[in-house]
């Protein structure tokens, strides 16, 4: 257990091979300091697990990376170049996609509409209309949806024209993941994607995560399940009370060590 600190990469010293790096990210909600200067990085072709107790700031960090929250301090770098991530649009343009903890799907729309939400392809030849009023190219939209679903190998989904409201939890999760993967993304952030799933469905999500790594994506995976984390992740970042605790190589640590770091931090453990 004394190996914990030697196995970590110190905060503020992101490895040169990092694809996406966040440095000194701060975020407060009124009186709550959700992030107090967090450092974080992820490489391509790796799964970085992000762990911490409830309220540690994991979701907030993910939303900051996805442009869904503006930050109160800190910088983001992509392949060493500083990037601004103030809106979801900024993040999508940089190839960063997120699967939210609550999925953020529209149940009243069908699968293909959800997969293209906010970025609907429009038919050409309608340049005289403002973009918002051009006809949607729904065939292209369905084709893209089909491709994204096939890529994930969700066999249980019959039709991309089914309303999301009628789908199971696992299918919804798959669609939320397909939305992130369908876009031309290099970074995929998954916020507790298996929290509401059964065993078989969790398996599907883990397979999808591994497939993302194998296709050279940078994957961030949030979960409370140590078994899953140790199965899919390459490294583990531990957050506590909105601050970094440490970063571990998964192959050189144990679930017990991670749980201790999550709940007590390093200082108490050393004494």
């Amino acid at each position: 257990m004394t190996s914990a600190v030697t196995n970590t990469v110190g905060p503020g010293a992101p490895s040169p091979s990092a694809h996406l790096t966040a440095s000194g990210i701060k975020k407060r909600f009124g009186g709550v300091e959700a992030l107090r200067g967090v450092d974080f990085d992820v490489r391509r072709g790796e799964v970085m697990a992000l762990v911490g107790d409830n309220g540690a700031g994991k979701s907030t960090l993910m939303k900051a990376l996805a442009g869904a929250h503006t930050t109160d301090g800190g910088t983001f770098h992509l392949d060493g170049r500083e990037v601004i991530l103030n809106t979801p649009h900024d993040a999508a343009e940089q190839g960063i996609q997120i699967v939210y903890q609550d999925l953020a799907l529209c149940e009243n729309l069908d699968v293909s509409a959800n997969l293209s939400l906010g970025d609907e392809p429009t038919k050409s030849g309608w340049w005289f209309l403002p973009h918002q009023l051009r006809p949607i190219d729904d065939l292209e939209m369905e084709r893209k949806a089909r491709a994204a679903i096939d890529k994930l190998q969700v066999r249980t989904l019959q039709s991309v024209r089914a309303k999301v409201g009628g789908l199971s939890g696992g299918q919804r999760q798959a669609i939320a993941i397909a939305r992130a993967v369908g876009a031309d993304s290099t970074v995929v952030l998954l916020d507790e994607p298996t929290a509401a799933l059964g065993v078989a469905q969790t398996r599907q999500v883990l397979d999808a995560v591994i497939r993302l790594r194998d296709t050279n994506h940078a994957v961030v995976y949030i979960s409370h399940n140590m078994r899953d984390i140790f199965e899919v992740s390459d490294r583990i970042t531990v957050l506590r009370h909105g601050s970094n605790v440490a970063v571990y190589e998964t192959s050189q640590t144990t679930p017990d060590e991670i749980v201790v770091a999550m709940t007590r931090g390093l200082d108490t453990e050393a004494t």
């Binding site: 999925l103 799907l105 529209c106 939400l117 906010g118 429009t122 918002q132 006809p135």
Partner: peptide
């Protein structure tokens, strides 16, 4: 149209 789609999206799940 994308505008119409966004009306349905807001009605279905404003946060998303």
């Amino acid at each position: 149209t994308p505008f119409g789609r966004s009306i349905f999206a807001v009605g279905g799940n404003q946060e998303s």
